[in-house]
Structure formats: C-alpha cells, structure tokens
Nucleic acid binder design. Structure first.
Ligand code: FES
Ligand code: FES
Lengths: 144, 144
DNA sequence: CTTATTTCGGATAAATTTATCCTATTTATA
DNA sequence: TATAAATAGGATAAATTTATCCGAAATAAG
C-alpha cells in the first residue's frame, strides 16, 4: 500500500509528535530505535519531511527533530504520505493507465475511485495529534 | 497499490476473458500488445495465473491462453490479485508491523482495516465477466 | 515421424527501492 | 574562538522488482 519509506516516515512523524508533546527534540538514532527502522535511511526520510515543512530540524549541538505543538492537530497523515510517496495513491490509475480519467476509464475505475476516496478521506482526517495520543496512552504501537 | 506485475496480470486476465467469450485463445504477444505491457514479463505473470488455475494454457501449435467461459462469472479480481501479489494487501499492517493484530495494533489499525475491507469487498465482488463486458462494450479500456 | 508453433522455465540484465557510509555544515557551549 | 554534537547531503552498495533472452518441452498438422 505504502512504500517502506512512507511507513517509516509515518511512524517517525508519530514518534516525533509524542515527544514534541513534552517539548523534547529527538535524534534520528532515537527515532529509528523507537520505530525499528534503519537509521541512515530514516534520516533521509526525515529530510523529506523537513523539506515539506511537516517537521522542524535544529542543527548542531542539542539539535534534533521536533514538531510545533500547535500544529500537531492540523498536520494530517495525508501530508506525510504526500511528502514521501507523492499523490499517485490518490490520483493514479489502479491498473497503471497513464492517468486516471473518467472519460477514458480502466476496467476498475468506478470501483477503484470509491476505495481510493475512502483512503483519502481517512488520511486527510487523521491528525498526528490523534495518532500520538494513541501511542502515549498505550492503545497503539510503533513496532514489532 | 498493486505491483506492476499485478496490474499486468489483471489486464491480461480481462483481455483473455474478452476473447474467451468468443472461444478464441490468445498468445502472450497478442496480450502484451493489447494491454501495452512487456511481452516476456507478461508471459511470466501468465504462468502464475495458470498455476493458480485461473487461466488455462494450451501448449504447442494453435495453443494459447483461455478461460473457461462457464467460469468467467465466478473468477473474482481478488483471485487474480492474490495469485500475483499474495494476500498482504488484505492482511498486512499498513505501517509494516510484522502482523496486523487488533490486540497489538499500529496507530492506523482501526481506520486502515476499514479501508482495506472496502478494497477486499470490491475485489471479491468483481468478476472477470463483468470487467470483460465493460471492455467489449467500449465503456472501459485496457491501455493508454 | 517430422516440422512448425507455442508455452515453460531457468539464467541474466536493467531499473528502482531500500539501506549504508562518510564528509560537510551548522550551532550551542565552554 | 575552539570544541563537540548534531543534521544535510552526496556517493555507494544491497535487495527487490521489473524486464529480457534463450533453449527445453509439448502439441497440432502434414
Ligand atoms: S482510470 Fe483506472 S482507476 Fe481511474
Ligand atoms: S496493525 Fe497496522 S493495520 Fe492492523
């Protein structure tokens, strides 16, 4: 469904969110340990999140990654996915036609569009805050 | 969403279905031209469909691929997807946890399971016959 | 039986994704 | 200013997916 990079990116964003809740910055090392991902690869993905203004990075000593607490509720999963995997999951044809187009639809277009809309809706209506709280409460997990 | 192999497999199955409707067998060459896919790679994918008893192959002169007309309505898209991509799209965790498990859920589990159920339902309730008829009527397309 | 045709299947190559390594740059603190 | 700590980013490697090639096996027809 999502690329490995995107899975790591989502989990990293959620973990950063849980720590930013308490005003803590986190390192790629801490992140990769917490979400069980390769450190250097995760660092690359974090850069993409920074470039897309979803996460703030602070260089130098005592630096790290953080998310503005006031933005935790407004940052949606869709933005994280879009920053890493792009928008093909929303816009691309399910059977790989050059573009998804109702006037030249593939065989599964009508049905696929409906499923995709459900996914889009889910991603656009799920905030990092919500996911971070689920982790903090112990209702959900980031690894294993 | 689906792998390239799976996209080709679905389109190939649909094309074979349209031809089997008229009692015609088709070659990998004809298939790859019709669905705009690499021929040798498509041939490999067809073998997977044959192994899974979704498509019948006839070797030798005047051979080719075909689908029993009586089965067109009972073969579902889910079977084609399953033969090529396996069942991870139904069963796998959206964030890559080792298994999707309600007692140890990832952050998006509840919402993801719902989206996945929609996809599963769609695939399990769409027959090759239905898709083949859409192609024959010109309401849907296999390439471009 | 021979031949032409066609799928099967193994080996290999190219492309993409995933992962690692190392150096440069930035920055807080002493 | 010097130093240590930390992200940024380029180069490279490994793994997986996608794609190609070629000979073996099967089969219909002459
Ligand atoms: S054209 Fe294929 S999903 Fe819309
Ligand atoms: S545990 Fe992640 S989707 Fe179910």
């Amino acid at each position: 469904m999502f690329s490995k990079a995107c899975e790591y990116g989502i989990k990293a964003a959620i973990f950063i969110a849980t720590q930013s809740y308490e005003g803590k910055r986190v390192s790629p090392k801490a992140i990769s340990e917490e979400i069980d991902s390769p450190q250097a690869f995760t660092a690359k993905i974090l850069q993409a999140l920074v470039r897309n203004d979803l996460v703030t990075s602070v260089k130098g000593a005592y630096g790290g990654f953080e998310i503005d607490r006031n933005q935790l509720s407004s940052i949606k999963l869709s933005q994280v996915v879009n920053a890493i995997d792009g928008d093909s999951i929303y816009k691309g044809c399910g059977l790989g036609l050059h573009k998804c187009d109702a006037s030249h639809p593939c065989s599964v277009h009508d049905k696929f569009v409906a499923v995709r809309a459900g996914l889009k809706d889910m991603l656009e209506n799920t905030s990092l805050e919500e996911l971070a709280l689920n982790i903090k409460s112990g209702d959900a997990f980031l690894k294993v």
